[in-house]
């Protein structure tokens, strides 16, 4: 039965109201995530800023909150991230180059591709168990920086590989053709043209992957990074602690003061992460300008 004009317009108005409500609802939900971030940062700053001073940066952990600091954790994290970068960047970028430039579209590259995608989804704590069994126990590297760095490298390798492949894919085929037509070998082409052209994209992916490894806690707990370290590591074979471990340690204590110390530690951690991301953006922008 056809609707009368009046019914129709009332019906239409209802539909419009529904549409408007839905749009406002979605917008509100989305902006609440911005609010969430604000709340989180606010909570961290009101608890942490009071403790954030040079004494905090330059002191070892302590049973007494007022004497406790993050020095060994900060140094440990810097050691760890440097080793992880040394291990994971060459291996990850090489894998991406192999898959994109050398392997062709055969079965092997398909297998590696699926395998990398699956590894990216493995929970970090499983990598921790792997590191514990393989590096700490089997290779007897003990609870050292190198065990932690190797474990963390395996964890972020899939991220680096996937990001690097995306970056390499954006290099125009014309550049490769030009190089090949001049009698360049595959590696000459890759080294002189593909790699420089994809460099900004690769760097961005690498820095994001490294910043993920700065915040990872579970694998380090598994391989036994210590929670109380009152000395600085001097080499890759030394035992160590790292910022997220120290923060975990402080958070898991019942006293309010230690929670505030954790907040101060979090501020330092987030500052390091933000600095890394800013570097990534800086490198990307600068290289893009130079390419143009």
């Amino acid at each position: 039965m056809p609707l009368t004009t009046e019914q129709e317009s009332r019906h239409l108005e209802k539909r419009h109201r529904k549409a408007r409500f839905f749009a406002i609802f979605c917008a509100a939900i989305t902006w609440s995530s911005v609010l969430l971030l604000a709340v989180l940062l606010y909570q961290v700053s009101i608890e942490g800023f009071r403790w954030l001073d040079w004494q905090f940066i330059s002191s070892f952990p302590s049973r007494f909150p007022e004497r406790a600091g993050i020095k060994s954790a900060l140094v440990g994290t810097i050691w760890l991230i440097s080793l992880v970068a040394l291990i994971s960047i060459p291996v990850g970028v090489s894998t991406a180059l192999y898959l994109e430039e050398f392997a062709g579209k055969g079965k092997i590259s398909k297998i590696i591709e699926v395998n990398v995608a699956n590894l990216a989804g493995v929970p970090s704590i499983v990598y921790g168990i792997l590191g514990l069994a393989i590096f700490v126990r089997f290779f007897a590297l003990e609870r050292s920086l190198i065990s932690g760095a190797l474990t963390m490298s395996l964890l972020i390798l899939p991220v680096i590989i996937i990001a690097s492949r995306e970056a390499i894919k954006t290099v125009p085929q014309g550049i490769r053709n030009a190089a090949y037509s001049l009698g360049a070998t595959k590696w000459q082409t890759t080294w002189a043209h593909v790699l420089p052209a994809s460099f900004p994209g690769i760097m961005t992916g690498v820095i994001l992957a490294l910043s993920r490894s700065i915040g990872e806690t579970a694998p380090l707990i598994m391989i036994g990074a210590m929670t109380f370290v009152a000395f600085l590591p001097e080499g890759p074979m030394d035992s160590f602690t790292a910022m997220p471990i120290q923060i975990y340690n402080w958070v898991s204590r019942p006293q309010e003061e230690f929670h505030e110390l954790a907040a101060a530690g979090i501020i330092v951690l987030l500052a390091v992460l933000l600095a890394m991301n800013a570097t990534a953006i800086f490198i990307r922008n600068r290289t893009e300008r130079r390419m143009k």
């Binding site: 014309g174 550049i175 053709n177 090949y180 037509s181 001049l182 009698g183 002189a192």
Partner: peptide
């Protein structure tokens, strides 16, 4: 390919200097 060169449909200079474009090969 060293002996038989090629020029493509779309100009495809390397994103490098004019000088390096010529000298690289």
């Amino acid at each position: 390919r060293r002996r038989i060169g090629m020029v493509f449909q779309k100009p495809n200079p390397f994103p490098k200097s004019i000088y390096n474009n010529i000298s690289w090969g």
